[in-house]
Design a protein around this nucleic acid. Structure first.
Lengths: 179, 179
DNA sequence: ACCTGAACACCGTTCAAGT
DNA sequence: ACCTGAACACCGTTCAAGT
Protein backbone atom coordinates (compact mmCIF):
# COMPACT_ATOMS: atom_id res chain seq x y z
CA UNK A 1 0.00 0.00 0.00
CA UNK A 2 1.30 3.48 -0.84
CA UNK A 3 2.04 4.66 2.68
CA UNK A 4 3.11 8.07 1.48
CA UNK A 5 -0.07 8.83 -0.43
CA UNK A 6 -2.18 9.51 2.66
CA UNK A 7 -0.65 12.81 3.80
CA UNK A 8 -1.00 14.19 0.31
CA UNK A 9 -4.66 13.24 0.18
CA UNK A 10 -5.24 14.85 3.51
CA UNK A 11 -3.64 18.03 2.33
CA UNK A 12 -5.64 18.05 -0.87
CA UNK A 13 -8.91 17.43 0.90
CA UNK A 14 -8.44 20.20 3.43
CA UNK A 15 -7.22 22.52 0.69
CA UNK A 16 -10.39 21.89 -1.25
CA UNK A 17 -12.46 22.73 1.80
CA UNK A 18 -10.45 25.93 2.37
CA UNK A 19 -10.78 26.89 -1.30
CA UNK A 20 -14.54 26.36 -1.26
CA UNK A 21 -14.89 28.28 1.98
CA UNK A 22 -12.72 31.12 0.67
CA UNK A 23 -14.96 31.63 -2.33
CA UNK A 24 -18.22 31.44 -0.40
CA UNK A 25 -17.06 33.55 2.55
CA UNK A 26 -15.83 36.22 0.14
CA UNK A 27 -18.99 36.31 -1.94
CA UNK A 28 -21.77 35.72 0.59
CA UNK A 29 -20.02 36.64 3.81
CA UNK A 30 -19.15 34.40 6.76
CA UNK A 31 -22.52 34.50 8.52
CA UNK A 32 -24.57 33.83 5.43
CA UNK A 33 -22.43 30.89 4.37
CA UNK A 34 -23.49 27.63 5.98
CA UNK A 35 -21.05 24.80 6.56
CA UNK A 36 -23.49 22.65 4.60
CA UNK A 37 -22.90 24.78 1.49
CA UNK A 38 -19.13 24.71 2.01
CA UNK A 39 -19.26 20.93 2.32
CA UNK A 40 -21.34 20.60 -0.83
CA UNK A 41 -18.97 22.85 -2.80
CA UNK A 42 -16.00 20.82 -1.58
CA UNK A 43 -17.70 17.50 -2.29
CA UNK A 44 -17.75 16.24 1.28
CA UNK A 45 -20.24 15.78 4.10
CA UNK A 46 -20.80 18.58 6.59
CA UNK A 47 -19.37 16.49 9.40
CA UNK A 48 -16.19 15.80 7.46
CA UNK A 49 -15.26 19.46 7.82
CA UNK A 50 -15.03 18.85 11.55
CA UNK A 51 -12.39 16.20 11.01
CA UNK A 52 -10.10 18.87 9.55
CA UNK A 53 -11.24 22.00 11.40
CA UNK A 54 -12.33 22.28 15.02
CA UNK A 55 -15.01 24.89 14.29
CA UNK A 56 -16.34 27.28 11.67
CA UNK A 57 -14.12 29.99 13.15
CA UNK A 58 -11.00 27.82 12.86
CA UNK A 59 -11.92 27.22 9.22
CA UNK A 60 -12.16 31.00 8.80
CA UNK A 61 -8.65 31.42 10.17
CA UNK A 62 -7.39 28.76 7.72
CA UNK A 63 -9.02 30.72 4.89
CA UNK A 64 -7.44 33.96 6.12
CA UNK A 65 -3.98 32.42 6.33
CA UNK A 66 -4.35 31.00 2.85
CA UNK A 67 -5.34 34.42 1.51
CA UNK A 68 -2.51 36.17 3.33
CA UNK A 69 0.10 33.79 1.92
CA UNK A 70 -1.31 34.33 -1.55
CA UNK A 71 -1.33 38.10 -1.06
CA UNK A 72 2.25 38.31 0.16
CA UNK A 73 3.32 36.30 -2.89
CA UNK A 74 1.47 38.62 -5.29
CA UNK A 75 2.69 41.71 -3.44
CA UNK A 76 6.30 41.01 -4.41
CA UNK A 77 5.37 41.92 -7.98
CA UNK A 78 4.71 45.47 -6.76
CA UNK A 79 8.22 45.84 -5.39
CA UNK A 80 9.65 48.54 -7.60
CA UNK A 81 6.60 50.83 -7.74
CA UNK A 82 6.06 54.00 -5.65
CA UNK A 83 4.57 53.54 -2.17
CA UNK A 84 1.30 55.32 -3.06
CA UNK A 85 0.71 52.83 -5.84
CA UNK A 86 1.47 49.94 -3.52
CA UNK A 87 -1.06 51.21 -0.97
CA UNK A 88 -3.59 51.67 -3.74
CA UNK A 89 -2.99 48.08 -4.80
CA UNK A 90 -3.58 46.87 -1.23
CA UNK A 91 -6.80 48.87 -0.90
CA UNK A 92 -8.19 47.51 -4.16
CA UNK A 93 -7.34 43.96 -3.20
CA UNK A 94 -8.91 44.28 0.23
CA UNK A 95 -11.99 45.95 -1.20
CA UNK A 96 -12.70 42.76 -3.12
CA UNK A 97 -12.60 40.94 0.21
CA UNK A 98 -14.33 43.57 2.34
CA UNK A 99 -16.86 41.12 3.76
CA UNK A 100 -14.01 39.10 5.21
CA UNK A 101 -12.48 42.24 6.69
CA UNK A 102 -15.67 43.25 8.50
CA UNK A 103 -16.17 39.67 9.67
CA UNK A 104 -12.70 39.56 11.18
CA UNK A 105 -13.29 42.83 13.02
CA UNK A 106 -16.67 41.67 14.28
CA UNK A 107 -15.44 38.26 15.44
CA UNK A 108 -12.19 39.55 16.96
CA UNK A 109 -14.28 40.92 19.84
CA UNK A 110 -15.90 37.58 20.69
CA UNK A 111 -13.60 34.87 19.32
CA UNK A 112 -10.10 34.54 20.73
CA UNK A 113 -8.85 32.49 17.78
CA UNK A 114 -9.88 35.25 15.37
CA UNK A 115 -8.55 37.94 17.72
CA UNK A 116 -5.17 36.22 17.77
CA UNK A 117 -5.05 36.07 13.98
CA UNK A 118 -6.08 39.71 13.72
CA UNK A 119 -3.28 40.79 16.07
CA UNK A 120 -0.71 38.75 14.18
CA UNK A 121 -1.91 40.10 10.86
CA UNK A 122 -1.42 43.70 11.98
CA UNK A 123 1.98 42.91 13.46
CA UNK A 124 3.07 41.70 10.02
CA UNK A 125 1.42 44.40 7.91
CA UNK A 126 2.44 47.27 10.22
CA UNK A 127 6.06 46.23 9.83
CA UNK A 128 5.73 46.12 6.03
CA UNK A 129 4.15 49.58 5.90
CA UNK A 130 6.73 51.02 8.30
CA UNK A 131 9.53 49.65 6.12
CA UNK A 132 7.92 51.21 3.05
CA UNK A 133 7.72 54.60 4.77
CA UNK A 134 11.36 54.32 5.86
CA UNK A 135 12.45 53.63 2.29
CA UNK A 136 10.41 56.64 1.16
CA UNK A 137 12.59 58.79 3.38
CA UNK A 138 10.10 59.51 6.17
CA UNK A 139 12.01 60.59 9.31
CA UNK A 140 12.18 57.87 11.97
CA UNK A 141 10.15 59.70 14.64
CA UNK A 142 7.17 60.02 12.28
CA UNK A 143 7.16 56.38 11.14
CA UNK A 144 5.15 55.12 14.09
CA UNK A 145 2.14 57.50 14.07
CA UNK A 146 2.06 57.53 10.28
CA UNK A 147 1.92 53.73 10.16
CA UNK A 148 -0.97 53.91 12.59
CA UNK A 149 -2.86 56.46 10.53
CA UNK A 150 -2.03 54.55 7.34
CA UNK A 151 -3.74 51.41 8.59
CA UNK A 152 -6.74 53.47 9.71
CA UNK A 153 -6.97 55.10 6.29
CA UNK A 154 -6.75 51.79 4.43
CA UNK A 155 -9.44 50.17 6.56
CA UNK A 156 -11.58 53.29 6.38
CA UNK A 157 -11.45 53.25 2.59
CA UNK A 158 -12.82 49.70 2.64
CA UNK A 159 -15.89 50.65 4.64
CA UNK A 160 -16.41 54.01 2.98
CA UNK A 161 -15.36 53.79 -0.68
CA UNK A 162 -14.27 57.08 -2.24
CA UNK A 163 -13.86 58.17 -5.85
CA UNK A 164 -10.44 57.12 -7.17
CA UNK A 165 -9.04 60.64 -7.06
CA UNK A 166 -10.17 61.31 -3.49
CA UNK A 167 -8.86 57.92 -2.41
CA UNK A 168 -5.46 58.70 -3.87
CA UNK A 169 -5.49 62.07 -2.11
CA UNK A 170 -6.07 60.37 1.23
CA UNK A 171 -3.31 57.82 0.62
CA UNK A 172 -0.92 60.58 -0.38
CA UNK A 173 -1.47 62.22 3.01
CA UNK A 174 0.19 59.13 4.44
CA UNK A 175 3.05 58.60 2.00
CA UNK A 176 3.99 62.28 1.78
CA UNK A 177 3.88 62.77 5.52
CA UNK A 178 2.07 66.10 5.46
CA UNK A 179 -1.39 67.53 4.99
CA UNK B 1 -62.25 52.60 28.75
CA UNK B 2 -59.28 54.97 28.47
CA UNK B 3 -59.00 55.12 24.70
CA UNK B 4 -55.91 57.26 24.85
CA UNK B 5 -53.93 54.86 27.01
CA UNK B 6 -53.28 52.40 24.20
CA UNK B 7 -50.76 54.39 22.16
CA UNK B 8 -48.75 55.06 25.30
CA UNK B 9 -48.71 51.36 26.14
CA UNK B 10 -47.54 50.54 22.68
CA UNK B 11 -44.74 53.03 22.96
CA UNK B 12 -43.73 51.74 26.36
CA UNK B 13 -43.70 48.13 25.24
CA UNK B 14 -41.58 48.73 22.19
CA UNK B 15 -39.27 50.97 24.21
CA UNK B 16 -38.75 48.16 26.70
CA UNK B 17 -37.86 45.81 23.87
CA UNK B 18 -35.43 48.35 22.40
CA UNK B 19 -33.88 48.97 25.82
CA UNK B 20 -33.42 45.25 26.46
CA UNK B 21 -31.97 44.75 22.97
CA UNK B 22 -29.64 47.74 23.38
CA UNK B 23 -28.11 46.29 26.53
CA UNK B 24 -27.72 42.77 25.16
CA UNK B 25 -26.47 43.80 21.72
CA UNK B 26 -23.89 46.06 23.37
CA UNK B 27 -22.65 43.46 25.84
CA UNK B 28 -22.87 40.20 23.90
CA UNK B 29 -22.94 41.45 20.34
CA UNK B 30 -25.74 41.21 17.78
CA UNK B 31 -25.03 37.67 16.57
CA UNK B 32 -24.65 36.15 20.00
CA UNK B 33 -27.87 37.72 21.27
CA UNK B 34 -30.94 35.63 20.51
CA UNK B 35 -34.35 37.20 20.13
CA UNK B 36 -35.46 34.74 22.81
CA UNK B 37 -33.12 36.40 25.31
CA UNK B 38 -34.26 39.88 24.27
CA UNK B 39 -37.86 38.81 24.73
CA UNK B 40 -37.15 37.36 28.14
CA UNK B 41 -35.35 40.52 29.28
CA UNK B 42 -38.25 42.65 28.04
CA UNK B 43 -40.87 40.39 29.63
CA UNK B 44 -42.59 39.37 26.41
CA UNK B 45 -42.80 36.35 24.14
CA UNK B 46 -40.34 36.00 21.28
CA UNK B 47 -43.13 36.32 18.74
CA UNK B 48 -44.33 39.57 20.29
CA UNK B 49 -41.14 41.23 19.09
CA UNK B 50 -42.36 40.58 15.55
CA UNK B 51 -45.49 42.59 16.20
CA UNK B 52 -43.32 45.69 16.74
CA UNK B 53 -40.34 44.96 14.51
CA UNK B 54 -40.31 43.29 11.12
CA UNK B 55 -37.01 41.48 11.72
CA UNK B 56 -33.99 41.28 13.99
CA UNK B 57 -32.22 43.74 11.71
CA UNK B 58 -35.06 46.26 11.95
CA UNK B 59 -34.85 45.95 15.72
CA UNK B 60 -31.13 46.68 15.44
CA UNK B 61 -31.86 49.86 13.51
CA UNK B 62 -34.35 50.91 16.20
CA UNK B 63 -31.63 50.36 18.80
CA UNK B 64 -29.14 52.39 16.76
CA UNK B 65 -31.56 55.28 16.33
CA UNK B 66 -32.30 55.27 20.04
CA UNK B 67 -28.58 55.39 20.83
CA UNK B 68 -27.94 58.14 18.30
CA UNK B 69 -30.69 60.34 19.74
CA UNK B 70 -29.27 59.81 23.21
CA UNK B 71 -25.74 60.55 22.01
CA UNK B 72 -26.68 63.79 20.26
CA UNK B 73 -28.42 64.92 23.45
CA UNK B 74 -25.35 64.17 25.60
CA UNK B 75 -23.02 65.69 23.03
CA UNK B 76 -24.49 69.16 23.56
CA UNK B 77 -22.83 69.17 26.99
CA UNK B 78 -19.44 69.12 25.23
CA UNK B 79 -20.23 72.30 23.32
CA UNK B 80 -17.68 74.73 24.73
CA UNK B 81 -14.69 72.38 24.87
CA UNK B 82 -11.84 72.17 22.31
CA UNK B 83 -12.40 69.99 19.24
CA UNK B 84 -9.71 67.45 20.25
CA UNK B 85 -11.53 66.84 23.51
CA UNK B 86 -14.83 66.46 21.69
CA UNK B 87 -13.33 63.85 19.36
CA UNK B 88 -11.81 62.06 22.33
CA UNK B 89 -15.24 62.02 23.97
CA UNK B 90 -16.77 60.49 20.84
CA UNK B 91 -14.06 57.82 20.60
CA UNK B 92 -14.50 56.80 24.23
CA UNK B 93 -18.26 56.61 23.85
CA UNK B 94 -18.05 54.53 20.69
CA UNK B 95 -15.43 52.25 22.22
CA UNK B 96 -17.99 51.19 24.81
CA UNK B 97 -20.26 50.23 21.91
CA UNK B 98 -17.62 48.80 19.60
CA UNK B 99 -19.48 45.53 19.08
CA UNK B 100 -22.38 47.51 17.64
CA UNK B 101 -20.01 49.41 15.35
CA UNK B 102 -18.47 46.26 13.89
CA UNK B 103 -21.92 44.72 13.52
CA UNK B 104 -23.17 47.72 11.54
CA UNK B 105 -20.16 47.55 9.23
CA UNK B 106 -20.57 43.82 8.72
CA UNK B 107 -24.32 43.99 8.08
CA UNK B 108 -24.16 47.08 5.87
CA UNK B 109 -22.76 44.87 3.12
CA UNK B 110 -25.65 42.40 3.18
CA UNK B 111 -28.63 44.20 4.71
CA UNK B 112 -30.08 47.19 2.88
CA UNK B 113 -31.93 48.46 5.96
CA UNK B 114 -28.65 48.59 7.91
CA UNK B 115 -26.79 50.03 4.91
CA UNK B 116 -29.34 52.85 4.70
CA UNK B 117 -28.94 53.64 8.39
CA UNK B 118 -25.16 53.57 8.09
CA UNK B 119 -25.22 56.03 5.18
CA UNK B 120 -27.56 58.39 7.02
CA UNK B 121 -25.44 58.19 10.15
CA UNK B 122 -22.33 59.27 8.30
CA UNK B 123 -24.19 62.05 6.51
CA UNK B 124 -25.13 63.48 9.92
CA UNK B 125 -21.80 62.94 11.68
CA UNK B 126 -19.67 64.12 8.74
CA UNK B 127 -21.55 67.41 8.80
CA UNK B 128 -21.01 67.82 12.54
CA UNK B 129 -17.28 67.15 12.25
CA UNK B 130 -16.93 69.46 9.25
CA UNK B 131 -18.65 72.23 11.21
CA UNK B 132 -16.27 71.66 14.12
CA UNK B 133 -13.26 71.93 11.84
CA UNK B 134 -14.64 75.11 10.30
CA UNK B 135 -15.05 76.68 13.75
CA UNK B 136 -11.46 75.66 14.56
CA UNK B 137 -10.33 77.81 11.65
CA UNK B 138 -9.41 75.06 9.19
CA UNK B 139 -9.34 76.53 5.66
CA UNK B 140 -12.35 75.55 3.57
CA UNK B 141 -10.47 73.54 0.93
CA UNK B 142 -9.04 71.22 3.61
CA UNK B 143 -12.33 70.59 5.40
CA UNK B 144 -13.45 67.81 3.09
CA UNK B 145 -10.39 65.49 3.09
CA UNK B 146 -9.78 66.14 6.79
CA UNK B 147 -13.35 65.16 7.65
CA UNK B 148 -12.78 61.96 5.68
CA UNK B 149 -9.56 61.15 7.48
CA UNK B 150 -11.12 62.12 10.82
CA UNK B 151 -13.85 59.52 10.45
CA UNK B 152 -11.28 56.90 9.41
CA UNK B 153 -9.15 57.73 12.45
CA UNK B 154 -12.09 57.53 14.86
CA UNK B 155 -13.24 54.18 13.49
CA UNK B 156 -9.67 52.90 13.39
CA UNK B 157 -9.18 53.74 17.07
CA UNK B 158 -12.21 51.60 17.91
CA UNK B 159 -10.81 48.51 16.23
CA UNK B 160 -7.21 49.11 17.27
CA UNK B 161 -7.15 50.77 20.69
CA UNK B 162 -4.08 52.88 21.42
CA UNK B 163 -2.60 54.20 24.67
CA UNK B 164 -4.30 57.47 25.64
CA UNK B 165 -1.34 59.62 24.65
CA UNK B 166 -0.94 58.01 21.22
CA UNK B 167 -4.67 58.26 20.64
CA UNK B 168 -4.60 61.96 21.40
CA UNK B 169 -1.66 62.38 19.06
CA UNK B 170 -3.61 60.80 16.22
CA UNK B 171 -6.68 62.95 16.89
CA UNK B 172 -4.52 66.06 16.98
CA UNK B 173 -3.30 65.26 13.46
CA UNK B 174 -6.90 65.86 12.42
CA UNK B 175 -7.78 68.94 14.46
CA UNK B 176 -4.50 70.74 13.83
CA UNK B 177 -4.55 70.01 10.12
CA UNK B 178 -0.87 69.08 9.84
CA UNK B 179 1.44 66.19 10.58
C1' DA C 1 -54.94 45.92 17.87
C1' DC C 2 -52.17 43.04 20.32
C1' DC C 3 -50.30 38.67 21.86
C1' DT C 4 -49.46 33.58 22.06
C1' DG C 5 -48.57 28.32 20.99
C1' DA C 6 -47.03 25.65 17.93
C1' DA C 7 -44.66 24.76 14.11
C1' DC C 8 -41.17 25.74 10.10
C1' DA C 9 -36.68 25.21 7.92
C1' DC C 10 -32.18 25.83 9.13
C1' DC C 11 -28.01 26.30 11.85
C1' DG C 12 -23.29 24.74 14.09
C1' DT C 13 -21.84 20.92 16.54
C1' DT C 14 -21.43 16.10 18.59
C1' DC C 15 -20.83 11.23 18.63
C1' DA C 16 -21.38 6.47 18.10
C1' DA C 17 -20.73 3.63 14.29
C1' DG C 18 -18.60 2.20 10.25
C1' DT C 19 -14.24 1.28 7.08
C1' DA D 1 -7.00 7.63 10.20
C1' DC D 2 -10.83 9.13 7.98
C1' DC D 3 -15.71 9.60 7.03
C1' DT D 4 -20.81 9.19 7.73
C1' DG D 5 -25.90 9.00 9.66
C1' DA D 6 -28.40 10.44 12.89
C1' DA D 7 -29.28 13.25 16.40
C1' DC D 8 -28.63 17.59 19.55
C1' DA D 9 -30.04 22.15 21.08
C1' DC D 10 -30.81 26.36 19.11
C1' DC D 11 -31.89 29.90 15.74
C1' DG D 12 -34.94 33.59 13.16
C1' DT D 13 -39.34 33.62 11.34
C1' DT D 14 -44.35 32.50 10.25
C1' DC D 15 -49.15 31.92 11.09
C1' DA D 16 -53.46 30.40 12.60
C1' DA D 17 -55.76 31.10 16.75
C1' DG D 18 -57.05 33.60 20.65
C1' DT D 19 -58.61 38.17 23.24
Amino acid sequence: MPRNRRPRDREEKSEEIVAAAATLFTELGFDKTSLASVAEAAGVTTNTIYWYFASKEVLLVAVLNHMLTEALKDASEQDGTPLVDQLEWVVERLQQRSKLVTTVHALAATSSVVETWHDGFHAVTNEILAEGLRESGVPEDQIHPLTRLGVFAIEGLLMHPLPKAEQRAVLRLITDGSL
